[in-house]
Simulated scan of single mutants.
Amino acid sequence: MRAALLRLLLALGLPVLLAAVWWAVSTGSTDVYWPPLRTILETGREVWTAERITTDVVPSVLRLLIGFTAAGVLGVALGVVIGTFPRVRAVTEPVLEFLRAVPPPVLVPVIMLFAGIGDTMKVVVIVSGCVWPVLLNTVEGVRAVDGVLAETARSYGVGGLARLRHLVLPSASPQIFAGLRQALSIGVILMVISEMFAASNGLGFAVVQFQRSFAIPEMWSGILLLGLLGVLLALVFRVVERRALAWYHGLRRSRRTS
């Protein structure tokens, strides 16, 4: 109990300190572009009502979840194939390196030509950036499967889907989740960028609209809401990761204590 309380205090300490410094420094500010934090919070409470959350926040989160899920499935599937077969890896590696080097925001105008300006475009933009950390981490995780375990599975005739399910994916899962964690932060960024182009709703759209109409406190409140959304998604992901990799974390703890 005491350890959990200490971890909570350590996690909240820096954000509370930064918020206190921001509050103190910005108090009494008359700069239109740097309003006091108190004004931003009061404005945010008025702006982000239940109706506004339904029309802007919910669509953004849905696009992010759909794109993140699609990127995860695609990245793991391709990563398993590429990591398992050296010849496939040798053929695809130059192309993958080329595509990975292209920044996803640059592809937004191109994607708009093929997918239009609706939700499909925004989801495709998110997938185009989120798939790479998942794919590359999956490839490395599959390649790092313990040789002794692989030989043991081969000796006992474990192959096909059974080998994939009971050996390859469990062994690669720590690196797969590392890729998914990176992809989540990239997805939030691309969610906002995609909503800045020809959009009619979403958090990115709202922040840009506030900026263009010089509603500066409202703009800052949207930025703060994006940060809080990122923190919440990270916490949810951490809970899912700990449950899915409970065996892995338990093994690491046992190694440290032995």
Rank of each mutant, 00 (worst) to 15 (best):
V208A: 15
Q182T: 14
V145A: 13
E151D: 13
G160I: 13
V188Q: 03
G204F: 01
M191L: 14
V125S: 14
G157F: 04
V142I: 07
V139M: 15
I186Q: 13
T152K: 02
V139A: 02
L167R: 05
V208W: 07
V207K: 01
G187T: 05
A206T: 09
N137I: 02
D146G: 07
A178L: 13
N137Y: 02
S194N: 10
S155A: 10
V134R: 02
G227I: 03
V192T: 01
A162W: 15
F210E: 09
E151M: 08
G227R: 04
F197P: 06
I186W: 15
Y156T: 03
W220C: 07
L169V: 10
A150W: 04
S213Q: 13
F205V: 01
E151T: 08
V142E: 08
I126V: 09
W132V: 08
F197S: 11
M196W: 11
V142H: 07
A178N: 10
L224F: 12
A153G: 15
R163E: 12
A198K: 12
S155F: 05
L224A: 04
V192G: 00
S200C: 04
A199T: 01
E195R: 09
E140L: 12
A215I: 01
P170Y: 01
L161V: 11
V127E: 14
V131T: 10
G141F: 06
G204W: 03
L184M: 15
I186L: 15
S171V: 06
G160S: 09
S213E: 10
G202A: 11
A172N: 11
G222H: 02
G147S: 09
Q209M: 14
G159Y: 12
L135S: 02
V139W: 07
I176S: 11
W132I: 07
S128Q: 11
L203D: 02
I223L: 14
E140Y: 13
A178M: 11
R143Y: 08
R154L: 08
W132Q: 07
A199I: 00
L180W: 04
A199R: 00
V192F: 00
Q209A: 15
I193P: 04
Q211A: 07
G204A: 03
V208I: 11
S155I: 01
A150V: 03
A172P: 14
A162T: 15
A206F: 14
S185N: 06
